[in-house]
């Protein structure tokens, strides 16, 4: 199997995720897109572990999975809070930082 297979697949997922982050308006959808990005990174890590015949990559993938779980938890809690305060989770209405 070519080494590039996994990496290219990961690149595709990554770019789709990036597109999602840019294009989506719903905060939950943005979080889902971030999950796509994180998974593509994990795929890369596992692929590198396979290529180097070393499980370190898998260990890092596990760490990323754990961090991702924490990130989703906190992220959704924030979304919930925003929803409770503003009755909307549309990101383009959140523009207090407008200069």
């Amino acid at each position: 199997m070519l080494a590039a297979n996994f990496l290219l697949l990961a690149a595709v997922l990554f770019c789709i995720g990036v597109f999602g982050v840019i294009a989506r308006r719903n905060a939950v959808m943005v979080l889902m897109s971030i999950e796509l990005v994180l998974n593509s990174v994990n795929l890369n890590l596992v692929a590198f572990a396979l290529m180097n015949d070393d499980v370190d990559g898998q260990v890092f993938a596990l760490f990323v999975i754990a961090i991702a779980a924490a990130e989703v938890g906190v992220g959704l809690a924030m979304v919930l809070l925003i929803y409770r305060n503003r009755r909307s989770i549309s990101l383009d209405e959140l523009s207090e930082l407008k200069g």
Partner: peptide, 17 residues
Amino acid sequence: LQRTQSGKINQYGGLLF
């Protein structure tokens, strides 16, 4: 440049990437 400081996350993301 003020127009780029929209306060919109998506736009920032787009700019970043």
